[in-house]
Amino acid sequence: MTKVSMTVNGKAVSAEAEGRTLLSAYLREGLGLTGTHIGCDTSQCGACVVHVDGKAVKSCSVFAMDVAGSEVRTIEGMANADGSLSVLQQAFQDNHGLQCGFCTPGMVMASAALLADNPKPTEAEVRHHLEGNICRCTGYHNIVKAVLAASGQDVPAVAAE
């Protein structure tokens, strides 16, 4: 066991980790940040997506030690400073972009990364970008709508194209 330190949601943190400890386990078990979810064991489902130094990564496919010293952002760090939902989170609620909530942290983190790179994505770009995130509840309709809405686009108009 080694002490691994990084910045998570703006706070300097450290916790014990083995060489094999995944970032997802480090966050959940080491730091008690259980908002990041584990939905598979093959890096397919995307429920564990977090941001490492501004990039969306599947935290189940990264060793905690390999990202020591990095800036990590998780779903727990996505709300506004006053605790209110961010524009993207609010769009998910307004558009019913979640049901059971289990894939939601990964969906929000992946979508936030998309919008940071591409502030006005097309419907096809949103769908393509979210290909690595599986949702079993929503049929994706309202997730795609939420992301488009968060980008400030008129959803009915985009949907009609």
């Binding site: 779903i75 996505m78 989170q89 998910f92 609620q93 909530g101």
Partner: peptide
Amino acid sequence: KRREDVRFLTGVGNY
């Protein structure tokens, strides 16, 4: 709007 969404969207659900 769903009241359960806020906890799921902020990572404080209780699975």
